[in-house]
Amino acid sequence: MTGVRTMLAEPALQGERLRAVAIAEAELAAAVAERTGTDLATDMYPRLVAAAASAAVAVAVRHYLDSADPPTPIERLITDAFTQVAAGLPASPR
């Protein structure tokens, strides 16, 4: 985890990480549009879904990297993030 934290903090890699995220979001948006019968040029829905999915994964990874040892398994964090997004981001229990 230390290596991943160091990599994510490296300014020289920030642009490449953002580029990879943008490519993944665009591909996911195209797949969502195809499966839902929506149009990327006229409907926001596919891009909103892709952006929400990207944000959910990013937040889960950040939470994983910031957590104490041993961290919660990343699979559980990603599942929890998607569950919360799917539920419409209900109010925090705290």
Results as ranks from 00 to 15, higher is better:
M7R: 11
M44H: 14
M44S: 14
L28Q: 03
A91Y: 12
D80W: 05
R35D: 15
Y64N: 00
R94K: 15
D66I: 08
S92V: 08
A68D: 14
T36V: 09
T2N: 10
Q84P: 04
L40Q: 04
T38G: 03
T42L: 06
D80S: 10
E34I: 08
Q84M: 13
R47W: 15
G88I: 01
V21D: 03
Q14E: 05
T6S: 09
R17L: 13
P70K: 04
D43H: 09
P71H: 07
R76S: 13
D80E: 14
R19W: 04
P70S: 06
S92R: 15
R35G: 14
V59C: 13
A60D: 02
L40E: 03
M7K: 10
R47F: 06
R47V: 09
D39L: 09
A31N: 11
A33K: 02
T79K: 15
P70F: 02
L28N: 05
G3W: 14
A56S: 08
R62T: 14
E27V: 05
T36G: 10
A51F: 05
A52F: 12
R62C: 09
A30W: 03
S67V: 03
R35W: 05
M1I: 12
A52G: 11
E25D: 07
V21T: 12
A24E: 04
P71L: 09
A26R: 14
A51S: 12
I74G: 00
P11A: 02
A86Q: 09
D43F: 02
T38K: 09
R47Y: 10
M7S: 08
A26W: 03
R5P: 11
T2G: 06
P90A: 06
A9S: 08
T42C: 02
P90S: 06
V21S: 09
L18I: 10
A31F: 09
P46K: 05
A58Y: 02
L13N: 11
I78R: 00
V21K: 05
P93Q: 10
A29P: 00
M7P: 10
A41R: 13
T38C: 09
V4C: 06
H63V: 11
T79S: 15
V32H: 04
G3N: 13
A86R: 05
V61I: 13
G15C: 04
P73V: 02
A30F: 01
P73A: 08
E34M: 11
R19A: 04
L18V: 11
V49Y: 01
A86G: 04
L13F: 13
T83R: 15
A12Y: 15
R5T: 07
V32S: 04
T6A: 13
